[in-house]
Write a protein that binds this DNA or RNA. Structure first.
Length: 226
DNA sequence: GCGACAG
DNA sequence: ATCTTGTCGC
């Protein structure tokens, strides 16, 4: 698929932070993406044992059948260490080549990590959205910033995630008895739409099916290798 | 100055 | 994220 070459990634920490602040205003929110959602891609990255290499995985499923339509992986060196708030600079250099190998464009992307629920409103899902210019959702397993009330116990319960008076995401219980997930808008999508799709793509497991599958593919045998 | 801190 | 076996709970 087509990828915009927005900028380079070999930046200092200070310049990366500066760049995030410059890119964030380009994020567009729309209530509902145009066109039907049929092909959904899950995106995730795993890091090798010694932390020097990583593998990005993209798994595309169809809706509502939830069958795997395509998979793409890319392995390479992990350039930057993990720094809270700068995750995209560590993982996007691995994710973008994996996406480039896809010979078609999915309708929706769900990334393992936050969208705009980020100190500078440019988590990895939002950042990726700018590169691919497609509807993108952030689905994180824990909180990076913001506050929220406790989430109800039953599946579908949720609480808005606030930073000050601003709603930056929503904490959703996708499965009874499991920790809730942190959903936030990436690019070209709205929070209501994102939240409803996360529930549509979740049933038996905690994570939305595309992300769950991508997680399996990324980690799969990253153990005995590299 | 002291925590908090996606993966 | 990763190191790791069996085990308690839904």
């Amino acid at each position: 698929m087509n990828i915009n070459k927005l900028h380079r990634f070999d930046l200092t920490r200070a310049n990366a932070i500066k760049l995030q602040a410059e890119l964030a205003p380009a994020i567009k929110t729309v209530d509902q993406p145009e066109g039907n959602i049929f092909l959904i891609a899950g995106v995730d990255v795993s890091i090798g044992r010694q932390g020097s290499t990583g593998r990005a995985a993209v798994v595309v499923i169809n809706y509502p059948a939830l069958e795997i339509i395509a998979e793409s992986i890319h392995e390479g060196p992990a350039a930057m260490p993990y720094i809270p708030g700068l995750l995209s600079f560590r993982e996007l250099p691995l994710i973008l080549p994996a996406l480039e190998k896809l010979d078609f464009e999915p309708d929706l992307f769900i990334v393992d990590g936050h969208g705009v629920a980020h100190p500078r409103r440019l988590g990895i899902a939002a950042h990726l959205g700018l590169f691919i210019d497609k509807p993108t959702i952030g689905c994180a397993k824990s909180r990076l910033c913001g506050k929220h009330d406790e989430v109800g116990w039953s599946r579908g319960s949720s609480a808005d995630l606030y930073e000050g008076d601003e709603v930056i995401g929503r904490v959703i219980r996708t499965r009874e008895g499991s920790k809730p997930v942190y959903i936030s808008v990436g690019h070209r999508i709205g929070l209501e739409f994102a939240a409803s799709w996360v529930l549509k793509l979740t049933s038996r497991f905690r994570l939305p099916e595309p992300v769950r599958r991508a997680h399996l593919t990324a980690g799969r045998s990253a153990n005995l290798k590299v």
